[in-house]
């Protein structure tokens, strides 16, 4: 073909756990379209959305084995393969979205994209997944004290349970599919997620208080199989990285729009959105983060350096 550099043709699957209209999925599709366009269809990537090929941890193994060529996953399951990515699960390591992205665009985080190579992946780009916030059924969370007596569903992983406990609540790990009915029946009194997922999961229909405490910012990552990547021509490798990097702007734009839309929908539905000062929450978890610091000292230093 005239576009791109090599002559090899590729037909790939990109495994995506989010549904088709989710902003991240739309960014994957944008990336795939760009690749197809710029190589005259020589690199043809199909986005397999909605978790058709399995959940994120499942798909990560499939990429490792070479069954699936690309995937977009949260850095949370990646931390089970490369420890360093566990830093994103620590509460309040980033002051805000700008701080996160100064870090992600910096040399250290870009180097982390290559650290996954030993496990069989090449990281191409980070994507935005917003901030995770608490939402509750009975009473609003305005300060850490309000978490007392609350059973909050968190992501699997001890660090997430410890985080809620540090703030005074009780962290519960539970299958995502059971969260909706558990909020209704009172098995749990709350959960936590970003705005788009809070709305699309329907959890807002039961848990009507949404507290924007932004306790975690866990970015996502676009990856390709390392074996496959290494077998490509240099021009193709270059193009893949380039288009992936360009897709970040597209993804963040789509993400911001979706967050705004979700908030509008929350307000329409009479959801009480509580904007809190995060300092108290941050103080409550400071010791916990400090204790973990030795595990992540290098990356934590880099995160601190990315502060203005």
């Amino acid at each position: 073909g005239s576009g791109g550099g090599g002559d090899d043709t590729y037909e790939w699957s990109l495994a995506e756990a989010h549904p088709k209209d989710y902003p991240t999925t739309q960014a994957d599709i944008w990336f795939a379209d760009q690749m197809r366009e710029r190589t005259d269809g020589r690199i043809d990537i199909e986005v397999m959305h909605g978790g058709q090929l399995g959940e994120e941890a499942d798909v990560l193994e499939q990429v490792q084995m070479g069954a699936v060529e690309m995937t977009r996953v949260s850095t949370s399951p990646v931390s089970e393969v490369v420890d360093e990515f566990g830093v994103f699960a620590l509460p309040y390591v980033f002051d805000d979205e700008d701080h996160l992205w100064r870090f992600l665009e910096g040399d250290y985080a870009q180097g982390m994209l290559d650290d996954v190579r030993d496990s069989g992946y090449v990281g191409l780009a980070y994507y935005e997944a917003g901030a995770r916030n608490f939402y509750t059924v009975d009473e609003p969370i305005e300060s850490p004290e309000d978490l007392e007596g609350q059973d909050i569903r968190v992501l699997p992983g001890t660090v997430n349970v410890e985080m809620v406990e540090a703030m005074g609540g009780s962290g519960v790990t539970m299958d995502y599919g059971e969260v909706y009915s558990s909020l209704e029946s009172g098995t749990i009194t709350g959960a936590e997620n970003n705005e788009p997922s809070y709305v699309s999961s329907g959890h807002y229909e039961t848990a009507e208080y949404y507290t924007r405490d932004a306790h975690q910012r866990i970015p996502e990552i676009l990856m390709v199989s390392a074996d496959l990547f290494d077998s490509m021509s240099e021009e193709d490798q270059e193009l893949l990285r380039e288009v992936a990097q360009e897709s970040i702007a597209e993804q963040r734009k789509l993400w911001d729009a979706e967050v705004e839309e979700s908030i509008a929908e929350m307000e329409d539905s009479g959801i009480e959105v509580i904007d809190v000062e995060t300092e108290e929450f941050q103080d409550a978890t400071a010791d916990m983060v400090e204790n973990k610091r030795s595990e992540y000292s290098e990356v934590m230093d880099a995160i601190d350096e990315a502060r203005e």
Binding site: D151, P156, T158, S170, T173
Partner: peptide, 12 residues
């Protein structure tokens, strides 16, 4: 979870 209000993450 129900009695001790301490949900063991290792259990599931």
């Amino acid at each position: 979870r129900f009695v001790l209000s301490d949900s063991p993450p290792w259990a599931p």
